[in-house]
Design a protein around this nucleic acid. Sequence first.
DNA 1: CATCGCTACTGTATCGTTACAGATTTTGTT
DNA 2: AACAAAATCTGTAACGATACAGTAGCGATG
Lengths: 381, 381
Amino acid sequence: MFVSKLRVKAGRLIVAQRSQKGTGWVTGMEGKTKNRAATVPPPAGARPTLKTIAFMTGLGITTVSRALKDAPDIGAETKERVRLVAKQIGYQPNRAGVRLRTGKTNVISLVLTLEEEIMGITSPMVVGITEILAGTPYHLVVTPYSSTKDPLGPIRYILDTGAADGVIISRTEPHDARVTLMTERHLPFVTHGRTEMGIIHPFHDFDNERFAYEAVRRLTERGRRRLVLLEPPPNLTFHTHMRTGFERGLKDFGAEAVSFHHVNIDHSLVAIRDAFEQLMRSVDAPDGIVSGSGSGAIALIAAIESAGKKVGENVDMVTKAPSDFLRWLRPEVMTMYEDIRLAGRELAKAVIGHIEGKPPETLQSLSQPEFQRPMSKSRKV
Amino acid sequence: MFVSKLRVKAGRLIVAQRSQKGTGWVTGMEGKTKNRAATVPPPAGARPTLKTIAFMTGLGITTVSRALKDAPDIGAETKERVRLVAKQIGYQPNRAGVRLRTGKTNVISLVLTLEEEIMGITSPMVVGITEILAGTPYHLVVTPYSSTKDPLGPIRYILDTGAADGVIISRTEPHDARVTLMTERHLPFVTHGRTEMGIIHPFHDFDNERFAYEAVRRLTERGRRRLVLLEPPPNLTFHTHMRTGFERGLKDFGAEAVSFHHVNIDHSLVAIRDAFEQLMRSVDAPDGIVSGSGSGAIALIAAIESAGKKVGENVDMVTKAPSDFLRWLRPEVMTMYEDIRLAGRELAKAVIGHIEGKPPETLQSLSQPEFQRPMSKSRKV
DNA sequence: CATCGCTACTGTATCGTTACAGATTTTGTT
DNA sequence: AACAAAATCTGTAACGATACAGTAGCGATG
């Protein structure tokens, strides 16, 4: 077998080298140097360390360390031997050791608000991130904060304690203090959403402008002319994006806006429904709706129905949707799929890229809304 | 001010003690012992360590360490001084240092299948867990695995690398190899769901038996007699729980079961819909449905409607629901709320309890289904 | 043949923390 | 006064890894 052949060969090599040098440290203890770890067999059953490999190969700990890093000053033969042994005994570097010595944590921190999670957007995002991290030494640590408090809190914590090599944040604002801080302090990060500060940094974003524009197109195609937008909260960057797309759509496709700014997608479903029901009952009632969030759409539908109207008849509606609930339950609502899992993957790739020193401008991506055909009402045969 | 007063007092105390001892090591360098860290000022701007506090207080590193741990062999006065300085300079123990020395990671690992996350159950769970961990030194690391592969994989990884102090697992089986392994190896854990192996271990579970029983009660109250259950996959423990509750309900409330075992809540929505549509079109069509999952319910509704029937008229339906989508979009469906966020909190408390050595039997909890009134169709006035 | 440079390998010190085994002073006992 | 015990404080070594400054051997160079 290939493996045993190589080991025998390796064994001979050890002997040859040692006898040439004449140090004889494989046999005796005369050296009594403290760090000569290789002379002491490792305790059985314990987790293998560099010391273990050093003992098994007859090499020094340093050599083993450098061999595994593919350092240029280690012989090709030796590297192979070390790698082989390491693999055989299932060596995995001790994270605490590395972290203490080098400061490298091998941790990516996902910073979340506890509040934004109502709609369960986190789930597929976490899955997407871990999909990418699975092939790397990185672990994903979830660091939450209460958005009612200081959003800089978790960032400061990470900076102060060196808790992570990279950070993923969302709910990005046009002038985002977190981005400023992390940039200044050279902490690699990526944002879910863009900023407008003139800082070039990694991001992934959904093309909300395009979404709103295409939504307006869909609605006007159905003859709708008085359109309303359930918008993101005004402090977030994509508020502007979505509004811009919406307004550009109105202009290009010839429709008018119905004002509706009392509530946004951050409000409770009940608040949205109440506000929208009032609008639907008024003389200003729109005939087309663009919903900036899937859960918001639910409240809007309820409002429409409470007002005695019906989606697909009195009004049409397009919504962003991170899952396909709505397609199943309300196929009359048009949906544009936002692939959060993909976002997670892109974000993970981007932070890692940033950590590895790739230029930020190469770590930016925008995902396009995917218009979904309404689900067939009956089963495929 | 209180603070400066105390510091002055502390300062005087140092002098007094040192002069009595006559070692004079505060002034000179004659000691030249290597670990006498306190004689060298810490680099400005660097993260404070025990050394920093040792320098500031004039104490030894060991003393500072022990003082912060409230060890019995440190004077009350000293402890207070150390604590004060530590707080002032914002000392936080270096995790890597602690972990390397003691093996304590201060990490809780949430082990997830990538696949189960379709329905987004993870989100509120993560939030619940982090709510509890926020008040502790623990971080939450998400460790995913592909359920198509070895579910023991992540557990072995954690055992081999000592990656976490405690583990949270879900999708628990009656005879769960993960539970056996972690118990044997004394790795603290908690399961979301119960086992049937005679091992007493921490768990949190939703009372699925009760849920199904109460669901049957609701349906029979509406005169339904031919009931069907969309059940969990047969390998998971709560499959039996739910079936038991269902069958007990049938007996107690006088109804009969319609067989439907081709699909379960793990199957795709399309598969569930197709199978159920077939049933609904057959002569065996049930008039009452219990759905073991919220997303499954969506597929069932679609199937019912495809078959030309209507929930609330031809059939009634009760479903478990982790959110209130259905209440908004299909108020005619009866829902029992499963509070996943609460589950997250309970699980976190239980692992920590286990880590701290509390007896497992005190770390078990069962949450009761919460029947929800149908949502009012119109706004509150 | 001394010396240089190169290749391949190695020991020491260090990151921050804690277990352990002292060390020193104070207090108590007889 | 002598000694033991208690109360406080301390240095050393170690956890596992790596940066750095070497060293040994060997062929090439002048």
